[in-house]
């Protein structure tokens, strides 16, 4: 649905994006992370057709944004960093305008508008002037605009900026609902939001794509923290011999409690094997916690490491 091929973008002599490549299919939600000035908005603008790449190309639903701009833009909904709204229009008038410029068939317009307004929770505000709305509702109006024409690809640049916590929760639910049959790329500074909503995360730093991380795979952890009542000398060897175990690292031992980090094969037999073993040895398991790399760790490793090199 979206494919960026070695996309670079220069502003004069400044290289804002350098050789960014990735592809996202239908039903995928991609989070775009990066520090301020990393190139997230530039990448969004390039993918939305507001900026053409200096090198490389972007395909939206199989259409090249530069060579077949109309076909590509028909398959695209874009919410820019500042919601592109007209304060003098009511929400409904604005969305009607958006539907018309996006080529929604007149016969379907009313139904489509009602659907979008309902989805984004704008029903009570639909006849209010956009200029009189709060920041959160303006943002929702901007999001509703991106949904006009039922595009296959949604690009959302910091869509939850201005949302209160309740609105942010509702938004995350909405994104998961919309993700069925669409490709969604959204940038955010909120790591927990990206972790909660996205299937994949791209970390951009100084215009380069440093990390393309599949959060679905990461969710199936192969590392566990295990706390066992017993001495390590007696426990370590039998645990290492379990067929599902790859590596065991001892963290520390306090008051007869042994703390271990166990790396296992990607199967689900480890917990069962461990319980059978330890119950036979009379060593109760006090804690068994799957360990996951947090997005924060990933982000800091990627961006911090890069800074360290330079």
């Amino acid at each position: 649905m979206v494919r960026a091929e070695a996309v670079s973008r220069k502003y004069g002599r400044f290289l804002a994006l350098s050789g960014v490549s990735f592809a996202a299919g239908s039903g995928e939600v991609i989070g775009l992370l990066g520090q301020n000035g990393a190139g997230k908005t530039t990448l969004m603008n390039v993918m939305a057709g507001c900026l053409a790449p200096s090198e490389g190309r972007v395909l939206i639903a199989g259409h090249d944004l530069v060579r077949s701009p109309f076909a590509a833009r028909r398959a695209l909904g874009y919410l820019s960093e500042v919601p592109p709204v007209y304060p003098e229009l009511t929400v409904r008038e604005y969305l009607q305008f958006c539907c018309r410029i996006k080529g929604v068939v007149r016969a379907d317009e009313k139904r489509h508008l009602d659907e979008i307004i309902g989805l984004t929770g704008l029903m009570p505000m639909q006849h209010r002037l956009i200029g009189q709305l709060s920041k959160g509702f303006r943002q929702r109006t901007g999001l509703a605009q991106a949904l006009c024409g039922d595009p296959e690809v949604l690009l959302l640049d910091e869509p939850t900026a201005g949302f209160d916590p309740a609105q942010a929760v509702a938004f995350r639910k909405l994104i998961r609902t919309l993700a069925k049959g669409k490709t969604i790329v959204f940038s955010s500074h909120l790591l927990h939001e990206v972790q909660e909503v996205c299937d994949r995360v791209l970390v951009i730093h100084r215009g380069r794509l440093l990390v393309d991380h599949d959060l679905r795979q990461a969710a199936q952890s192969n590392r566990y923290r295990v706390v066992i009542q017993g001495e390590p000398e007696r426990l370590l060897s039998p645990i290492r011999q379990l067929s599902s175990v790859c590596r065991v690292r001892q963290e520390n031992t306090t008051a007869g409690r042994t703390r271990l980090v166990v790396e296992t094969k990607p199967d689900e037999t480890f917990a069962k094997q461990l319980f059978h073993l330890l119950s036979a040895m009379g060593a109760p398991v006090l804690e068994l916690t799957p360990l996951r790399d947090t997005l924060e760790t990933l982000f800091l490793q990627a961006t911090g490491g890069e800074e360290g090199k330079e």
Binding site: A48, G49, C50, Y78, S80, V82, P84, V85, I101
Partner: peptide, 14 residues
Amino acid sequence: RGMTDKLLQSAPLS
């Protein structure tokens, strides 16, 4: 000024 040019540029509008 209103940043609505982004809407027009990303829409299938000549």
